[in-house]
Amino acid sequence: MAEAQCGGECATVKGLMSGKGRETVKEAAWSNNVVAVQILGICSVLAVTTRASNSIAMGLALMFVAGGSSFIISLLRDITPKRIRIIAKMAIIAVLVIIVDQILKAFYWEMSLALGPYVGLIITNCLVLGRGEAFAQHNPPLLSAVDGIATATGYAGVLVVIGLFRELVGAGEILGITVLSPEWYPRNQFMILAPGAFIALGFLIALFNHMRGETAVE
């Protein structure tokens, strides 16, 4: 939904140009959080958050891909012809996704199995292409990299919160360590399964809206 979202987003990006680094980070990670505010990249948010450790791995992978692709896209922004820019960006993102996939397969085989096809699916995560389109296109490389990493940090934050919550309620564990003893806490499988993910995200966004003092986000 990158382009559809751009309408409102491009205006904020123009406002950012004067603020630079710190503003960029705050805007990207908190007040314009990709998951909770822009509702982008939610597929993987729901799919990998059955455990907090999976969430952390996915968050780190996204930080690398988003930061790296924003940096490279921004480096090449003046020499990329407008007409083929989407395919050019896709190629850049694909390379970074393959690097992450290879690293996971080589050093963290179990994590790679746990994340399944969702690592390969980072390529279609709207967050990455969205930042490339909306920010890296018009900004210098370093600032773009900061923006990419900050956006992915906001994304990772949401992932970890949902992951911790689902793991705690669903399996009674935090990062694989049993916190709620199975003797008195029956496992609530509902939170591990698909429906629990949707409902957890729904309430998290509601909480986020409440904290930001806003009501409807359409």
Binding site: A194, P195, F198, I199, G202, F203, I205, T215
Partner: peptide, 22 residues
């Protein structure tokens, strides 16, 4: 309820549908 308007309630509905599909 105000904070649930829009997206959150849509996600909760999706959760209920997902439960039905289970």
């Amino acid at each position: 309820p105000a904070p649930l308007k829009g997206m959150p309630v849509a996600f909760i509905c999706a959760g209920l549908m997902s439960m039905a599909f289970f």
